[in-house]
């Protein structure tokens, strides 16, 4: 077994272990959450009981976040997808990626709320997608300006027809989440647009970019059975939009 295979095997075992532990721990945390509510209701306004139970609530919330992070870490391998709530994962990953940006950048977020929409994605990879797209946007605007990020949901009605310009495999008909990152930088010209997802293609100076960022983004989105498109107006900015398939409950079918 070579070292790469060994590493893969190790990550696979770690992913399995983390999944099992997360399942057990979540089952342990759940009753605490409900019990705190009962204790608070019976506290008859006793400030010490209320304060203590609020502390327990924040500890339980923190523990749940740690479990999430361990799961995300253990599943860095892009082949491992998780069934995740789209709005929650979008908020979580974007907040993390935005935290890494210089303070001279203002990020405007516009997200359509659909609590019953889920997808098979990978949290670590979504952070990676945002980090890459945002860092390109920051570079395109010379480290200052506004970036617009949006999440909306749409239907693609027939195979590859309604969105013919999406790069990647034709998207199957169905519902998709469309996440866009738009900058107000210099845009791209036609030649740059054609090569933008090629590995090692870069418009940055030597030593400033590897040219792998967008190739990585492309592979991640493809792994989610999604698609990606780029719209660039020379001199006015660039918008990357990626589409990920949506799975949803029957709530709206009543």
């Amino acid at each position: 077994m070579n070292s790469q295979e060994r590493q893969r095997h190790k990550m696979e075992s770690l992913g399995q272990l983390a999944g099992g532990v997360a399942h057990e721990l979540n089952n342990v945390l759940q009753p605490i959450f409900f019990a705190i509510d009962t204790i608070q209701r019976r506290s008859e306004g006793d400030p010490l009981i209320i304060e203590s139970s609020q502390k327990i609530t924040s500890c339980v919330t923190r523990a749940a976040d740690i479990i999430d992070d361990i799961l995300a870490f253990a599943r860095q391998d892009s082949d491992r997808l998780d069934f995740l709530n789209i709005n929650e994962t979008f908020d979580h990953s974007l907040t993390f990626a935005v935290g890494l940006l210089p303070k001279t950048i203002i990020v405007h977020v516009n997200a359509e709320k659909r609590p019953s929409y889920w997808s098979w994605i990978n949290k670590t990879d979504l952070v990676r997608v945002f980090t890459n797209l945002l860092s390109n946007a920051v570079d395109a605007m010379n480290n200052k300006g506004d970036i617009h990020v949006s999440l909306k949901y749409l239907s693609i009605l027939s195979q590859g027809r309604s969105k013919p310009d999406i790069i990647g495999e034709d998207l199957a008909p169905g519902q998709y989440a469309c996440i866009s990152v738009r900058d107000e930088g210099g845009g791209l010209d036609t030649t740059e647009l054609e090569s933008i997802f090629d590995p090692f293609f870069t418009t940055k100076d030597i030593g400033e970019g590897t040219g792998l960022g967008l190739a990585i983004v492309y592979n991640i989105i493809k792994n989610w059975h999604g698609g990606i498109e780029v719209e660039a107006i020379d001199g006015q900015g660039t918008e990357f939009s990626f589409y990920i398939p949506v799975y949803r409950t029957g709530e709206d079918s009543y």
């Binding site: 979540n26 089952n27 945390l29 759940q30 605490i32 959450f33 409900f34 705190i36 509510d37 339980v60 919330t61 749940a64 069934f83 709530n85 019953s116 889920w118 799975y247 949803r248 409950t249 029957g250 709530e251 009543y254």
Partner: peptide, 19 residues
Amino acid sequence: LLNNILKNVDFFLTKPVAP
């Protein structure tokens, strides 16, 4: 399993859910 469940239910939540 999860895709089948999702199609046939109205709401899907994950543990631990806040009360």
